[in-house]
Amino acid sequence: MNVLLDVLLRAVVWLALAPLLPGIITKTKAWVAGRRGPPVLQLSYDLARLWRKGVVLSTLVSPGFVIGPAVAWVAVFGAALLLPLGALGTGLGFEGDVLLFVYLLALARFCTAWAAMETGSAFEGMGAAREVSYAVLSEAAIIAAVLALCVQSGSTSLVAMLTPAAGAGAVLLAAGLFVVLLAENCRVPFDDPNTHLELTMIHEVMVLDHSGPPLAVILHGASVKLLLFAVFLTEAVLPMGSLTPLAATGALAASVLVVTLATGMTESLLARFAFRRVPLLLTVGFLLCLFALLFAWRGGPA
């Protein structure tokens, strides 16, 4: 019973807090631009609105068009539940759960691309092609980061990996994972979440034909993914194990906020990269994680 309650509480925390992050990023950008900006809860309002709407389905699509976003949402949410929340640890962890974590994220991407291809639209095909091309590099970076944590902690369980400090490679890991966070969550300089220009989109163009509840699920899933990466980045770098439970929770919340603000500032002050330069930056992210791995491997215990 306690386990069930624990998982439920965690689910509420993840699902309720996630939509705040895009709101904070938007607020940061508005503040830099000297505007007031939409309320922090805007995404929640949008989700409520979309949930009440009907669904427009093309006559061409198979059920995959709706199943794709649903599976993707479940996969991301599942991956989130595997992550320990500071001192609370995780309710579902097991030895080797990091492999499931990585594969769940890959499954979510596959399902989004699958649903996009269902429409047969040239735009969405282009977007899916771009998404999976860049994923080749960003997934390599995630795997390098995970390996670095594994080697350092000598474990393949997320709780054990994320509790101690990342050691000498912490700065490298933080920089590398921040690049991955920006790329995976379609933020500037990789993608522009605000653009209306279909031809320049990566992630946004894949969901152009979705509407109503499936779109709400996609948007909510994207915010959970953003929170997931922010939590992962924070816990990979900070020595959560050496803090008191209260301090650990506070540090986690503060760091997630800092990461979110940093994303907002990056987005405010940097122009978006041309597509041909995206692999360059992603490779840099991969190399940073790779060097963190080398540190963990050859640098000895932190």
Partner: peptide, 13 residues
């Protein structure tokens, strides 16, 4: 132009 490359400061001003 600045908005199209997602460069916020000039676009907003």
């Amino acid at each position: 132009l600045s908005g199209d490359v997602a460069f916020l400061p000039t676009a907003a001003a």
